[in-house]
Design a protein around this nucleic acid. Sequence first.
DNA 1: TCCCAATAGTTGGATGTCCAACTAATCGCG
DNA 2: CGCGATTAGTTGGACATCCAACTATTGGGA
Lengths: 168, 168
Amino acid sequence: MLDFDPIEEARRNWAEHGWGSGTAMVAATSITRAHQILLGRINAALHPHGLTFSRFELLALLYFSRERQLPLGKIGARLQVHPTSVTSLVDRLVADGYVERRPHPSDRRTTLAALTDVGAALVVACAAELEAIDFGLEGLDEDGQVAVSTTITELRSASDGWKPSTST
Amino acid sequence: MLDFDPIEEARRNWAEHGWGSGTAMVAATSITRAHQILLGRINAALHPHGLTFSRFELLALLYFSRERQLPLGKIGARLQVHPTSVTSLVDRLVADGYVERRPHPSDRRTTLAALTDVGAALVVACAAELEAIDFGLEGLDEDGQVAVSTTITELRSASDGWKPSTST
DNA sequence: TCCCAATAGTTGGATGTCCAACTAATCGCG
DNA sequence: CGCGATTAGTTGGACATCCAACTATTGGGA
């Protein structure tokens, strides 16, 4: 456990070497560290349920969809992960009984992932757990959460290509 | 490529199911997606140099240290990663000739990682590259970068236990 | 002086990410 | 109607993370 800010120290070093102000470096490494903190806390909270954040997100996506099933490719598009990540996550969720792979009725290229009843129950329990721990955001009040989301929306929309909505 | 905001859609679903406002969920998944975007861009920029962001950060840490060498444990503490991650990263950097493992002069438990001249030259080249691409933060202006860093500092300081500095 | 707690780093393994390359299937154009 | 481009998902592999358990070493207290 450090008693000083390692990122602030890196910024000072960066500037002292004449490599720039370090503003971008601080933002990038701050986001990296924030992600690590959140993932650690979220995975610790989900561990008793036998889930990880990535698997929970996939199950939640199926839970929210109309028929509780989606093509693997659509899952990847919505979660914005590589097709091989979807294959791997679905493999594990099938092994654990939370998802079933089903053939597409009319397109033999396509595999559907369908949420099982056990999986649906798990989503509800884990959603409550994540809300209870504020998605690992202890140390950041609601104003801070909104602020970070609003700022990051600029980055995401520029990367994805959609227009941000005006409401929050 | 989506033409709508998948996180905003998830927030609507979350709220419609009565699982809470979704503010924390949006903040957490926004940070996750921002990290993914940055890592993808940074790793693409470093790829021609044969480096990844994590390896670059380790080399830069050694570059900034007084004697261009540090115990592996100190590297892990500063970069805030697990000792096994340090072992693995150093293994690869040693294989590539950018770092050398050296025994500690007086403590046989401790291994030092020392930056080689080739490694030092690579740090300088990659630092310039990262500054040139704004650490992958295209889509976020400098005010946005400062804003996200400042907000995340609240989270990091609460997690680490140090006091944020008053200056930025 | 001895022993135990603590420290440093490694090993084996699990998790999740993406890349390159592949197979199978579909669709649309000539 | 046939063929080539495109799509869907998988496989093998690389990368980076952390956990549990381990070995080797050190330091301080009894």
